[in-house]
C-alpha cells in the first residue's frame, strides 16, 4: 500500500525525519500500537498510535541526486503522519 508522509513542520518532539516529509513510500510492515511521542515527551497522557515501517526509494527521497535510485530507506512512521495515496 502506498502512503505519503505529511509535509508538516510542527514544533515539539517529532519522530518523523524532515528528509522524509512529503515523500511517498510503500508500507513494509505494521508494527503495532505505541505511545505518541509528541505527547509522551511532554508527560501528556499519550494516545496509542499505529506505527508502520515505510519503504522509500532513494530516487523518491533524493530525486536525481540519488546515489543509486533502486536502493531504499526504511523508517518507522506513526499513522497520523501518513495518508493513503
Amino acid at each position: 500500500m502506498k502512503v505519503r508522509v505529511h509535509n508538516n513542520w510542527p514544533p515539539g518532539h517529532v519522530r518523523t525525519p524532515g528528509y522524509l516529509r512529503g515523500k511517498t513510500g510503500e508500507i513494509e510492515r505494521k508494527i503495532g500500537l505505541f505511545s505518541n511521542p509528541e505527547q509522551n515527551a511532554y508527560r501528556h497522557a499519550p494516545e496509542q498510535r499505529e506505527l508502520l515501517r515505510v519503504r522509500f526509494k532513494m530516487s523518491e527521497v533524493w530525486g536525481a541526486n540519488a546515489e543509486n535510485p533502486n536502493d531504499v530507506i526504511e523508517a518507522e512512521i506513526y499513522s497520523h503522519w501518513l495518508e493513503a495515496v
Binding site: R15, T16, P17, I31, F34, P37, L51, R53, R55, N68, N70, D71, V72, I73, E74, A75, E76, I77, Y78
Partner: peptide, 12 residues
C-alpha cells in the same frame, strides 16, 4: 545488490 538503510526513527 540493493542497499536498505534502516532509520531507527521511533520505537524499534
Amino acid at each position: 545488490v540493493q542497499v536498505r538503510v534502516h532509520d531507527s526513527t521511533a520505537d524499534m
